[in-house]
Design a protein around this nucleic acid. Structure first.
Lengths: 230, 230
DNA sequence: CGCTCATTTGATTAACATCAAAACCAGTGG
DNA sequence: CCACTGGTTTTGATGTTAATCAAATGAGCG
């Protein structure tokens, strides 16, 4: 089966080994957007609020978070420049979104996005493609959370961060999020995250730096992360 | 913000406490469909195959499964009558889909679905709405896998099964899938699933029957499952 | 420097997995 | 009807992983 050119192009975006975004169907909305800045740790939207806006990340990193009443926390995804926030739900937002670093966003009214999608098929396809990319990401995370050990989770995480946001084509993976964020993303405690990073460092697989982690042996990491569903 | 009528209707489908599907935008494809039957434990589609078809479940239950090389298994979702299978990926299927029970499906060529979506906006919206429902489901599962204890997982699972597929408005939740399926869905071992079901039975919260589980105290289950993200 | 907060390391505990065996159940054939 | 078989489910005993508790180290900042 051959898909349309648009679809094939769209689907390639998230499979690129280094982040590189083609000009997208969202551009038809440019005139309706305005820039906003959100400071580190501040929220972008809140659980249960009506979905009034969506945002495209220009610079910085965001997280979507689910909170339980007793304080347990789960980070469901990290979001990077080019990602779309607030399109994952129809009527109200399902999770909280917060800025991990100071972040610059371009904000669009959902009304307009939905209206445009309704008479601009490439945009509609683009929106579904984006949603599918998030779904694939979520399914990978489900396999990780359900069936991987702590060290496998850490290795998978480092490779994912490298894949999703490595500004330079080098070994350094910047980790703007705290250890607590990583722990809540991987379903671990902070201490377990630290211990396993140290463990990987002792093996010589990675080097831990202030700003992130240097991948000294990608093959070893891939081996540990269990290949396919890394 | 007010969304269109179509969208509001679509969004309501998965939030209904008992399964009840409105006539959907997929109906425009009816002429292109054909019925197929798949026997218990047989596959519907396989990981990495090109996405040639999609299927609407008429009767029966299916599961989507991710397999690691060493045999570890993760069930990412169970699927029920009315659900759409094989629309979760663009070019190739991400997971395997298998019949949990003997299952009747209506099969459609993806080419046609995509072509129709391209010039029939309600169908495009419907497809995105379906994808969003799966994404929401996946995010709930992520919070469950990352942060809930075994007994909380079991309680959440029983309530989810009740919500998603309870043919009668009674206390009985039919569980067509094996304990192994449940374990691989919740990221637990078979034994832990059994033990915690027994534990809930001893408390009088549920009664375990051949065909499923009787919910004797829904409030207690809700309490155990930790409300919000159940 | 002295404060705070994040990270790292160590000691202990709890939760769940694993290993092993018994009970149960659905078919099958006498 | 019963006995036999293969699979699944349940229960029990033990082991392992990661969480928790606690303290030390390190980094950023007035």
């Amino acid at each position: 089966m051959q898909l349309s050119t648009q679809e094939a192009t769209s689907a390639g975006i998230f499979s690129a080994s280094k982040r590189h975004r083609a000009p997208d169907a969202f551009d038809v909305l440019e005139q309706f957007g305005c820039n906003v800045v959100v400071r580190r740790t501040h929220e972008i939207y809140l659980h249960d609020e009506p979905t009034e806006f969506c945002w495209k990340i220009i610079t910085g990193c965001a997280r979507t978070v689910q909170l339980m009443e007793d304080g347990r926390r789960q980070v469901s995804e990290f979001h990077w420049p080019g990602d779309l926030l607030g399109m994952d739900d129809l009527e109200t937002y399902y999770s909280d979104a917060e800025a991990v670093t100071d972040i610059t966003l371009r904000r669009y009214p959902r009304r307009v996005v939905e209206a445009q999608a309704n008479n601009h098929a490439p945009l509609a396809l683009w929106l579904r493609t984006m949603t599918l990319a998030h779904l694939r990401c979520a399914r990978r995370q489900i396999a990780l959370l359900g069936r991987k050990t702590a060290v496998e989770k850490i290795a998978s995480f480092l490779l994912e961060m490298d894949r999703r946001f490595a500004p330079v084509d080098g070994r350094l993976v910047e980790l703007p999020m705290s250890r607590m964020d990583i722990a809540d993303y991987l379903g671990l405690s902070i201490e377990t995250v630290c211990r396993n990073l140290t463990h990987l460092q002792r093996e010589g697989t990675v080097a831990i730096l202030r700003s992130g982690v240097e991948l000294r042996n990608r093959d070893a990491l891939l081996e540990i992360a269990c290949g396919t569903w890394s």
